[in-house]
Design a binder for these strands. Structure first.
Lengths: 338, 338
DNA sequence: TTCAGCGATGAATACGTATGTATAATGAGC
DNA sequence: GCTCATTATACATACGTATTCATCGCTGAA
């Protein structure tokens, strides 16, 4: 890169000490006296010395790199439509930088190709999995990483078999916040759009918050008001089915903003007034949520905090320390749609 | 990472050859016979061998890593609101993977801190600069990188002093597309919202496309219809000023979708009908553009192609080869707002 | 039969750092 | 004045790979 990059030997010559002392001085070892430390650092600064990461890594057997694996099964478009991971990625990057880690990013299209994961792992001290969507049989899926003692964390649901590896939102509480809010505005026939099954544990938890809240309020949970959906288009279709079902309803809790926006499209096409006829609440607080009409009430996840927690717990694993906090709290953002 | 990672020596022992032969076989050197190559590869597969990048990099003096510097002067929010870079980043990642490069990402808050850039450069074979916004005196700004013979490319305007380093959109043509479209729908009093100055060369080029098109059509370019703006809020304010100015206008070309959405907000507040009273065209094709009401006509930049061009031209530089194509063509996306 | 030429492999080395061990310098205690 | 503990530094080595140079066996021409 540089015309001729200086090595620690060059610094040693310039400062009149040995290469070993240079290394120790730059790493602030207590073994080296204050005076020589300063002399060495000054020489390093003047020569524009930068530690060679390959050599240092080879010696110390670590990379000071965290890998982020982005599972993107729906192709590029999904990530494009999911700014949540992007924001989180931003905070991951910042948090990692503070701890002197670089961040290596890989788009992972095939979530079965664990060999590739290991290759990535080989270039990093630990890995962060984002957007991993399929948690069926999740214990065995991660066994390869576990067997190889590869530190990893993922953003996702709080499954017992992944104890200590998962950072996630308190989804049950999120579901409660949304449902309680709808109840507080006088709605009591509240539909649920999303998937309440074990293959989407996060959605399931939000459903649990929804149904717990209804039960607590003495309202029966009506399966006729539950519709499956995973994205905008399916949300739209679910909205159509909901309208066609003939069921009475005055509120809708959608498990994601994308789905909510699809539902909103269906409702608007049917000339329903939002929120007058039907109140609508989403989940995630995508930037989009503030711009649709009417703007969408939603449950926000603090993605900045999320990124920090991911990095901190991963680094804790790397250093064999106890992980700290692993859950972030959701927050209700009230807008026009409710 | 692994309990005990095998080295090339282990493979050598398993295959009954020397370490040198292992290295050659795995790198498909013609010096090694077909038979032993297979034997070595088989052994490597069975032992789960993965080349140690630190050691390889130390030996070859390269990292096989491309660094992406994301200049993010407006803080985390801007990147969050700018999915364009995200999509581009996705294609960068894919293109890099095809060429066996990893991608290291760094958020860069201070565009003056070139020392940090060099540190990053030291960990990569080349760097890609995204979102670098200030091109005043741009020649000298990049001199540090040039002096150190550090390969780099950036996404930006086609400035002569950055010849061979810039991949960008044909912004003049983009401005023409937008303006020609507005003309073709019968508008002839077309306002421009953005900044037509050298400190934003991309916006300036779009303005040139706008003014050239008007001139070609025999329409005078009216400075009274030009307003500065850089983001949604400033677009809103520009919209208010435009309305308050009393000037007649029936179309608006905004240099970005964010600005266009701000203008749209101002127009709607003033009860202007879009597109009946005023037609509106943006630039970028953010995902948001399809969701606002009315949906926004805009000029799309092919970010997938852009990412590929960035990677390919950077790798060309690294290998001291001639760069290829450096420009992508814009495309008009017509929606409801025009 | 001899030897040049060639193809395939092994031995040896260097990349730049971090660190264990040895050594020199200093001061305290008797 | 001598020993011994303490400190600061130098010396030496290993990390795992890629590559240069040397070696060896073999073929074919003289």
């Amino acid at each position: 890169m540089a015309v001729q990059k200086p090595t620690s030997l060059d610094i040693a010559a310039a400062a009149g000490v040995s290469q070993a002392t240079v290394s120790r001085a730059l790493r602030d070892s207590p073994q080296v006296s204050e005076e020589t430390r300063e002399r060495v650092k000054k020489a390093a600064r003047e020569l524009g010395y930068i530690v060679n990461r390959n050599a240092a890594g080879l010696r110390t057997q670590q990379t000071n790199v965290l890998a982020v694996l982005l599972f993107d099964e729906l192709g590029q478009h999904r990530f494009e439509a999911n700014p949540f991971f992007l924001s989180m990625f931003g905070s991951i990057s910042h948090a990692a930088a503070e701890l002197k880690y670089d961040v290596l990013v890989t788009f992972q299209e095939d979530s079965e190709n664990w060999h590739h994961d290991l290759i990535v792992a080989n270039r990093a001290d630990g890995i962060i999995l984002l957007g991993y969507g399929d948690y069926r049989d999740s214990g065995s899926k991660f066994s390869m990483l576990t067997e190889n003692e590869c530190p990893y964390v993922l953003w996702g649901p709080d499954l017992p078999e992944l104890k200590g590896k998962v950072v996630g939102c308190n989804n049950i509480k999120g579901g409660r916040l949304a449902t309680e809010h709808l109840l507080s505005t006088g709605r009591n026939k509240i539909a649920f759009v999303g998937e309440a099954s074990a293959s989407s544990p996060e959605f399931l938890a939000r459903f649990q918050g929804y149904s717990q809240t209804l039960t607590d309020a003495g309202i029966a949970v009506d399966p006729a008001l539950q519709f499956d959906a995973h994205d905008e288009q399916e949300g739209y279709l679910a909205g159509l089915r909901l309208l066609a079902s003939g069921c009475q309803f005055d509120g809708v809790f959608a498990v994601s903003d994308s789905i909510a926006i699809g539902v909103m499209r269906a409702l608007k096409e049917a000339d329903k007034r939002i929120p007058d006829d039907i109140a609508l609440v989403g989940f995630d607080d995508l930037p989009l949520a503030a711009y649709v009409e009417p703007s969408l009430t939603t449950v926000r996840q603090d993605c900045k905090m999320a990124g920090q927690l991911l990095v901190h717990s991963l680094v804790s694993q790397i250093h064999k320390k106890a992980p700290g906090q692993m859950t972030i709290e959701p927050e209700l953002i009230v807008r026009q749609s409710s």
